[in-house]
Design a protein around this nucleic acid. Structure first.
Ligand code: MN
Ligand code: MN
Ligand code: ZN
Ligand code: ZN
Lengths: 143, 143
DNA sequence: TTTAAAATGATATTGAAAATCAATATTCTA
DNA sequence: TAGAATATTGATTTTCAATATCATTTTAAA
């Protein structure tokens, strides 16, 4: 079994939750997707493989994938929560074009370090952060 | 007239929008508030001064305050958009305790600079960013 | 197998935010 | 300052993502 699928399986076992055929299917479809996907979009894809699957199950499973660090929630500020593969990925933030919506994954270790220091300066222990950089991409700037 | 109120007034004039008594009242109440406030919370405060005011007007006016750079939207990730005074304030980001909900306003010029550089490296012209640092505050860490 | 616990899908519900619309208020023009 | 043109209002409905409910089914461990 692939490592990510196994981690999901183990997570469920540890929490005494069940590895159902629905969860397996949703995992598989999610894991093949490249972009950042919304629950509704994933539901659309999953339904093609099994029309009997319920929308609520997709929402519920995405939460589980998130809890088990297989997926990560991202919020591009358009009112829809999206999910992206997280397992095996290194941490990254997002650079988003406000005009065409394109997103680029970025990371700067110096920023990450400074965030830790900044939090420590205020007596906080950092557990995570969200950072979104908004602007205009090269193509959209030309126009 | 105070500078912020004047800027709001001028913004409306420039856009050929009207400076109504409702907008004036909502501005005044908002401007006295210290914390980050949600539309519903502000609606509660405004209604005390004028019970006839409509909820939709509060939502609409907050958007205008945001457009005119009097207010800024903040999203602490709890499903409610909040607003904070922006006019006359220097830019800052937020450090949020996941346990007690306390938020601290922070800024690090080195991070801001690095964000610009990071965007430029990918051909983007940065127009803004949102950064939220999540963790545990000193008090909550003790427990 | 049996059995207790968890999961499912259909459906209803929630809550924030936006849209609608007839009535009203504001601003501009003359 | 009257009146026309336009924007705004509050009540209400609508939207939409996300969650809750619940009777039925499935799962995993004994
Ligand atoms: Mn990503
Ligand atoms: Mn703030
Ligand atoms: Zn673009
Ligand atoms: Zn705290």
């Amino acid at each position: 079994m692939q490592a990510a699928r196994e981690q999901f399986f183990n997570y469920l076992a540890k929490k005494k939750l069940k590895f159902t055929t629905q969860r397996a299917l949703i995992f598989d479809v999610f894991w093949q997707v490249e972009e950042h996907i919304s629950p509704e979009e994933l539901y659309g894809l999953v339904k093609k493989k099994d029309p009997s699957i319920g929308q609520a199950t997709v929402y519920r499973t995405l939460k589980l994938l998130s809890d088990s660090k297989i997926a990560r929630e991202v919020d591009f500020g358009d009112g829809v929560t999206r999910y992206e593969p997280y397992f095996g990925q290194s941490h990254h933030d997002h650079l988003i074009c406000k005009e065409c919506g394109k997103s680029v994954e970025v990371v700067d270790e110096r920023i990450e370090k400074l965030q830790e220091k900044l939090a420590a300066k205020h007596g906080f222990i950092l557990s995570g952060h969200s950072m979104y950089l908004y602007g205009h991409c090269k193509e959209c700037s030309k126009k």
